[in-house]
Nucleic acid binder design. Structure first.
Lengths: 94, 94
DNA sequence: TTTATATATTTAAATTTTTCGATGTATTCT
DNA sequence: AGAATACATCGAAAAATTTAAATATATAAA
């Protein structure tokens, strides 16, 4: 998968915030890879709407895969996109 | 080299702008790895002070190594930091 | 040593991002 | 159906970032 430059910008921007980095790290630590939205919110000291906004940016950048489960939402790290981003970065090394 | 989370944030933020991404890509394409500041400026349609500001953010994040050569400045991609950033990202995959 | 050149810094305006309260929507529970 | 729960969206204020003009600094050239 090859990312266009606009997508690389979106991904970088999404990762350029301490709360969003924390969300990514929290989700990666989950056993079955998925993490419930409510559980993320429990671990971050921000208003619910703000957390929703942050998660949205990560989903928009395709760094997270979202899934609805009744009235709950759960998220998973999109490994394919992380890999594609890493590939872009490795190119910067020549 | 292991990056702390604040550093990862700085690097991500630095890469989250189209002009700064363009600068990184331009520099990587140089034959001897170094690129003159004036040459960067020639290829970007922004005020000199703005370009200086952008380069500064890349240097602050340690994505670029700066060197002074008389009244000129030249820059090189810091491969070690890019590698460390890539390592952090790979961890996000579990 | 005056002048020109290359880059950095300062200041301030414009834009974008972050944040939260209020409200909306969809789903589950009673 | 009505109440409660989980999450999303809207609107507005606060904070951070981007931008450029003006100015400063340091080096090279004449």
């Amino acid at each position: 998968m090859i990312l266009d430059i606009k997508k690389v910008e979106r991904i970088s921007k999404a990762l350029g915030d301490p709360y969003r980095l924390k969300i990514m790290e929290m989700i990666k630590k989950q056993n079955d890879n998925w993490m419930q939205c409510a559980c993320i919110a429990d671990n971050i000291d921000l208003a619910q709407s703000t957390i929703s906004h942050h998660i949205n940016q990560l989903v928009d950048a395709d760094l997270l895969i979202a899934e609805k489960d009744g009235r709950n939402a759960k998220y998973m790290v999109n490994k394919e996109v992380v890999t594609a981003y890493v590939n872009f970065l490795n190119q910067l090394k020549g």
